[in-house]
């Protein structure tokens, strides 16, 4: 369970460095980096905070991860969650903070 930060998309805004509940992300040479990926909880706070979708969540191999990456784009009350698999297939699911869980 961890995140990866795509350096080419990072704008060095620093929001992820502030929001991570484990203080795991730092700015180095004007790019955000995760210093201890094995300390990540997988809460996805940084994904939601990143304005450039530069941060992706993935499941570690030791917990059965298959290599897919998940990013989030915010749009008003909507969160668009996009999963990209290693075969480049893409699936997006949208949640709305105005819709309550039904279960």
């Amino acid at each position: 369970m961890s995140i990866e930060i795509r350096q080419e998309l990072c704008t060095a805004c620093g929001r992820c460095t502030q929001i991570c509940p484990g203080s795991l992300i730092k700015l180095k040479e004007k790019k955000a980096v995760i210093l201890h990926p094995e300390r990540c909880w997988g809460c996805a706070s940084c994904l939601k905070e990143c304005p450039a979708q530069a941060i992706a969540l993935f499941l570690g191999e030791d917990m059965g991860g298959l290599g897919a990456r998940m990013t989030v784009r915010k749009e008003g009350t909507l969160l668009h969650w996009t999963v990209t698999k290693p075969d480049s297939s893409v699936q997006t699911i949208t949640t709305n903070s105005r819709d309550a869980n039904k279960y």
């Binding site: 998940m70 969650w81 699911i93 279960y103």
Partner: peptide
Amino acid sequence: TDLIKAYLNMAPSQSLRWLE
């Protein structure tokens, strides 16, 4: 689909597991 959304709102790794 509703369950995948529900887990995205509290434990996104489970939704990612189902989707991937």
